[in-house]
Design a protein around this nucleic acid. Structure first.
Lengths: 236, 236
DNA sequence: CGGTACGTTGAGTCATATCAACCATAGTGG
DNA sequence: CCACTATGGTTGATATGACTCAACGTACCG
């Protein structure tokens, strides 16, 4: 069944709401995107693109959540990041003109805009402020990737699990009962921090025993964020 | 004692030799760098900048090798990458206008040029081709960081050690006797792949027993690169 | 009602970290 | 010139975090 309740978002309105990178475009450039883009809707589990494929454009998330991941040697997923409203994905491949180095799959039903590659390239050439903002974005992600490398290489699974809970709190927030707003399977949690599903389950029940969290099925309720901070050693 | 045998490199000549990003600058822009930059020399062990410090410019490597690393929770180094002639470092912090997220230390004596921040920013604004090339560079590094995350999260220490030897062969090459040109301590090797020094030592002697490498003090002679490829599972 | 995906728990194993001792080398200063 | 110190390399013994395998429970869905 088609969804009829959502109209195609207008870029300047959307970027004002979501804070996307397109807020740095001129009015004409914004119109140009509105004219050229395609609006698409996806459901949980849908794949937007796969590692290794050549990409003809990139996506700007209007609503929903997408996981960006690499597939390792034995087929195991490594989640690299999550994209949420205002984020863009696949821009890396477009700008470096390489095939996709990651896959993207929907975690929560999404509305996204697909924007052809050439339009991004042309804005980089024509709008230096936009180019600089994109550079900032890429450089910022690079810094985060470096931190993540250090964490995975040096911290224990226990520390990493506590840390990722804090990151998820920070990125997606808690509802009025302190439940994490983003809902992930245990396997997905494992695939972020690079461990086995069973390890996540065991550590989560330890956290529960230590009154740091409560668990209701897939939902995680945060009871003691400070306690998690202590475990995670976030402040080195 | 000062070294007098090296004259300050001229940028257009240097970038032609080393293939640095500055080959995309106009003649005037190149002159401007030549005028504004500072030439500096460093010895093994010298620190160019430290994590957390605010940076007033970036470095372009003319000769030598530098390791870029983060310091983890317990003071352990995590090597993020190596910079060699033609590479630039610290550009990330300059462009994103954040404090340095890594430290940089000399592995092999270096001649480098220090270039003030504002000049990089102004080129990004004035030269769209240069901005695009910088974006490509950052995006490419981001892709490599993502692969590295997946490797560290999913591969065994053994696989990672084999893989990093292949990477070092690829990046720094072998001399006429198949010795790796870059010379690292066992601890540094450990700090790339995220393991303990003793583990590197043990695995290297296993590789030696399996006729994959020969060891002469710090020098590593590659005897069977194909064998290393098999171990590393580089082709997933 | 059976199927599929997800979650949980237990038991056993193994790779890797940790701790400790020792050796080799090179640089330093008296 | 030698003792001294620091740094790096090596090896062995031991501990343990985390993975794997396996069984079973649970919930939702067509």
């Amino acid at each position: 069944m088609k969804q009829h309740d959502v109209s195609v978002p207008v870029c300047d309105k959307c970027s004002a709401e979501t804070g996307s990178i397109f807020r740095h475009l001129t009015a004409e450039e914004g119109d140009m995107i509105n004219f050229k883009k395609e609006f698409r809707q996806f459901r949980r589990g849908d794949v937007l693109y796969r590692e290794g494929s050549r990409i003809s454009g990139f996506y700007c998330i209007h609503s929903g959540i997408i996981k960006v991941f690499k597939t390792g040697f034995d087929g195991k997923e490594q989640i690299i990041r999550f994209a949420k409203p205002g984020d863009i994905i696949a821009y890396r491949s477009v700008l470096s003109n390489e095939v996709a180095c990651t896959s993207a799959k929907v975690i929560e039903d999404c509305n996204v805009c697909f924007i052809p590659s050439d339009i991004l390239i042309s804005f980089v050439r024509s709008n230096p402020v936009f180019a600089h903002e994109l550079l900032k974005l890429a450089c910022h992600e690079l810094g985060e990737a470096n931190s993540f490398i250090t964490d995975i290489a040096q911290k224990t699974v226990r520390e990493r699990l506590a840390e990722i809970l804090l990151v998820l709190i920070n990125d997606f927030g808690l509802d009025d009962q302190n439940y994490l707003k983003i809902s992930l399977t245990r396997e997905e949690l494992a695939n972020i921090i690079g461990t086995a599903t069973e390890s996540v389950i065991r550590l989560l029940s330890e956290f529960k025993a230590d009154k740091l969290v409560e668990l209701t099925g897939r939902r995680i309720r945060i009871m003691d964020a400070r306690g998690l901070e202590k475990i995670s050693n976030v402040f080195d």
